[in-house]
């Protein structure tokens, strides 16, 4: 169905004639898309902030006291063969003691009374970013414990779980919010087109009796839905840019923490197209349900 210039004329006439209904719809759609944008903006920034945390994560394998150098080497090479392992560092107990003293600094005298080094040799295992999830790490830790020579495995289980559930939770909230608001926007367009249709019912009836096809009648409403949605999208795009450049950037002068916030401008550029799609979807549903 190719829209004729007259379909655009009819849509434009209707938009001017019913300007208040259309303005109200544009504002509703713009607000909805702005909330979606803010949700995306928040999720993006939290995701960016937590993205580098797994790289700092490591698993420590404490080794048996009587393990010899050959056994350690074969253990390291066995671990390195695992796809989930990024790197393995051997920490002899002497190095571990030095590190402990460095950490304790002025309080290192507490270690002076020790006759022998109680710390075991250890392996520090760094994992690839994709694997750092609570279940995968636990599975890996269980497997490592089964290896001969490994006495104990230590990793930040609670931290990993918290991080994992924070991400999953945020993603879920984001998806629910986007789905709910998108449905709301479609419903706004659906209702608007339905109202506009009823207000032009006489005219449509006349068009039909003069030989208008369904396409001729439908197209101006689809155009109107698309224009309403696109305008709402542009409005939300302007809103999110204004929010960042006029609010957050100014705030960052006074509060440096806001300087950490990232603004993924390209993520928001499709907003007018999203608005157009939602607007046309609402219009199409309305026209599909109307009897004419």
């Amino acid at each position: 169905m190719i829209p004729t210039p007259y379909a655009f004329t009819l849509a434009l006439q209707s938009m001017i004639r019913e300007k208040w209904i259309n303005i109200l719809s544009v504002l509703s759609i713009g607000s909805g898309l702005l909330i979606i944008s803010l949700a995306l903006f928040s999720v993006y920034n939290i995701d960016a902030a937590t993205r580098s945390l797994p790289e700092k994560f490591s698993m420590v394998l404490y080794l048996d006291k009587d393990i010899n150098k050959e056994n350690v080497d074969s253990l390291v090479s066995a671990l390195k063969k695992q796809g989930a392992v990024h790197s393995v560092r051997y920490i002899p107990k002497e190095e571990a003691m030095r590190e402990l003293k460095a950490v304790l600094k002025n309080s290192s005298y507490v270690l002076d009374g020790l006759e022998e080094n109680p710390l075991p040799d250890a392996l520090e295992v760094k994992l690839t970013r994709d694997v750092v999830g609570p279940e995968a790490v636990k599975r890996l830790a269980d497997e490592a414990l089964k290896i001969k020579g490994v006495k104990e495995v230590e990793y930040a289980e609670k931290f990993l779980s918290a991080l994992h559930y924070l991400k999953v939770g945020l993603k879920t909230i984001g998806i629910i919010l986007i789905a709910t608001l998108s449905t709301g926007i479609v419903f706004v367009c659906y209702s608007t087109v339905k109202i506009l249709f009823y207000r032009r019912k006489e005219e449509i009836e006349t068009f039909k009796l003069l030989g208008a096809t369904r396409g001729f009648i439908r197209t101006p409403f689809l155009i109107e839905g698309a224009v309403i949605g696109t305008t709402g999208g542009i409005l939300s795009l302007v809103g999110i840019f204004v929010f960042y450049y006029l609010v957050l950037l100014r705030l960052s002068v006074a509060m440096p923490i806001f300087k950490m916030i990232l603004f993924p401008s390209t993520l928001f550029l499709p907003l007018p197209f999203l608005g157009m799609f939602l607007g046309m979807t609402g219009a199409a549903i309305a026209l599909g349900r109307l009897r004419y």
């Binding site: 039909k208 030989g211 096809t213 001729f216």
Partner: peptide
């Protein structure tokens, strides 16, 4: 879907 095309053959003074 043919009805509009039938009506295009008929001019009506309502």
């Amino acid at each position: 879907s043919d009805i509009p095309f039938l009506r295009r053959n008929v001019g009506v003074v309502f």
